[in-house]
Design a protein around this nucleic acid. Sequence first.
DNA 1: CAAGATTCCTGGTGGC
DNA 2: TGCCACCAGGAATCTT
Length: 272
Amino acid sequence: MPELPEVETIRKGLEDLLQHQPKILKIELLRKDLREPIPVKMVQSLVGQRIKKIERRAKYLLMRTDKGSLLSHLGMTGTWREAPLGDERLHDHIYLYFEKGLRLAYRDPRRFGIFGFVALGEDVRHLKLQHLGFEPLTEAFTGEVLWKQLRSKAVAIKIAIMDQKIVVGVGNIYASEALFKAGIRPTTPSLKLSREKCDRLVLAIKETLREAIKAGGSSISDYEKLSGESGYFQTQFQVYDRKNAECKICKKKISAQVLGGRSTFWCSSCQK
DNA sequence: CAAGATTCCTGGTGGC
DNA sequence: TGCCACCAGGAATCTT
């Protein structure tokens, strides 16, 4: 479900909710696996610890304690919410109980999410975190480093920017949106992008993600912020899910095609 | 190495 | 109204 802006919005929501660094009183796992088995023992070892802060790496959330971190990936349909006693819903899989009656619920109908444990200081060696590429919103992610990554690859540029080994957090929606902003066709072979186009693309990715974060993410289907409010970036989509609609810039009909198994949208006049 | 299919799941939608 | 095929924000793993 959520791409970087949605995960970042949820991270902030959790941070607000947990700012008093509450102690974890109980972790209730309603099942032992999501997409993958949950390391039950390791997860349970954090009962009694306080959540000190919430961080994000790629689309993973990390709930930090002094004895290790809880790792949460939302897959396509995962959500965290504040769930007072009595608020139990279908497809709730995890409840985190804190002091003062605070309870967090993880709900994930499709169960494509991941819930795990990261030992202290093991982030870079963790199986799920070790192969991740650049964080798009850091200074380290530049046109030059992207260009170096792309110059040996023939895959379509949209597939490349969705490849988590190259740059993280860009999913199917924001890949189409960023390429529109950069004026680059999604089907362009990666190695054909000039340095200048890579510069433009990196800027476009950063801008697109920042604008979406500002809007609280995009709410389509079941995504919502922790507060229960919707993000509104979907009203700002230029191309995503706008097949045959008029391009907001040039009025030409938006094109759509399946690329790498994912629906892809672009303006054939604005993007070359 | 590239491109596409498949896999994990449930639920909403659109066509007939 | 009912049924069913198809599609969905992710991502790893296969086959060709």
